[in-house]
Write a protein that binds this DNA or RNA. Sequence first.
DNA 1: ATGTTC
Length: 472
Amino acid sequence: MHADLVEDGPYRFRIEPTGAMRVPGVLFASRELLAPAENAIEQVAHVAALPGVVEASYAMPDVHLGYGFPIGGVAATDPREGGVVSPGGVGFDISCGVRLLAADTDASGLAPALRDLMDGLDPVIPRGMGKGAVWHLPGRRDLTGILTGGARYAVEQGHGNERDLRRCEDAGAVADADPGQVSERAVERGARQVGSLGSGNHFLEVQRVAEVYDADAAGAFGLRPGQVCVMIHCGSRGLGHQICTDHVRAMEAAMPRHGIEVPDRQLACAPVDSAEGRAYLGAMAAAANYGRANRQLLTEAARRVFRRVAGARLDLVYDVSHNLAKLEEHVVDGEPRRLCVHRKGATRALPPGHPDLPPDLREAGQPVLIPGTMGTSSYVLTGVPGAPAFSSTCHGAGRVQSRHQAARGVGGRQLRAALEEQGIAVRPSSWRGLAEEAPDAYKDVSAVVEAAEGAGLCRKVARLVPLGVVKG
DNA sequence: ATGTTC
């Protein structure tokens, strides 16, 4: 256990400010969940040193080592006090996130068609490193609609419906995207990948609602026990990666000019109200829209297969990002302030009654979608009133082994056989990629969710189990 | 996460 960590409540630890830290560190977790994340705890303290940071540098129960910021980190800065935005606080996969679709059929009814369904999804869900996409776009002009319009643009082009957009964070498009801040190289990489899962922990899973903890909230979300669901986990692909690379470089060069020093060069940042800060936020918003359009197009690909093979419909439950910085209003020390909230491997979790929720979700709160490790449960949570960390919670299981370590363990073929033995159909894109996602490489997602709920960050609504996984 | 080290 980290020497400077003090237990401060249920599932709550604190690091008192020392050295360059401007605020404390606050970690929501059990000792067991923090034990494999020693190096990430150091990163929580580093983030607390950022100019303009307010309240605390927070860590969610799935915290682990990331680029500069920990994955599972939440930090807000006040632009009026020189607060910065840092690409490392969002991550390379800008707006990586999850969407959940609910089918109008139960698992028992779908069982005879499951194999055909998986075989139908296999060839139409592009995935793996660099390979294939639902849309192919020649270049910048064609990408502009996606970069500014996100899922809304995809729907306008005939890929989805208006109801989908009401069930997306920000109604499917982040405002203030600036395609002019997206480099030619980022556009080139992005143009070939619109509508693709990518690799790593990204997937499309066919799931069954195994358990409902809150029937009222589940009902509002359109979920019931036994129901079939589809969960899509993907991000902004090479476009987001290139944008992060470009803007980290620009901010590194500009930091001396802004008189900013940080404990780790991976925390490269610039004031929100500076040319570099605005440039990054404009490009980041464009990548966020790309990520949402990506998930919208994969939704349509899945819908076509479900209709054809099973005669089933898929309705959007919600689409939410796990990697984003947003300008939001929060009350700090009794004062409403406009803050730049970084969530990296963390989920916004709006409480019941929040004005940004669509009317049909307002009573229940925002659906929070938590993908589990391959072959294990995923969760649907919801926000709670008065939650700490700027209404944020966990985002997934959280790695404990590097990809390299994981690949030295169980082989991909062996892993697939074990999952098929459990009745889970697996359609991988590579054996190596599958091995890197072995469940042993992750924390127990149920323990993460228990800690998040126990710390008062969110409430459990439902647990989903996999029937079949299309693996990135 | 990522044309898995421009």
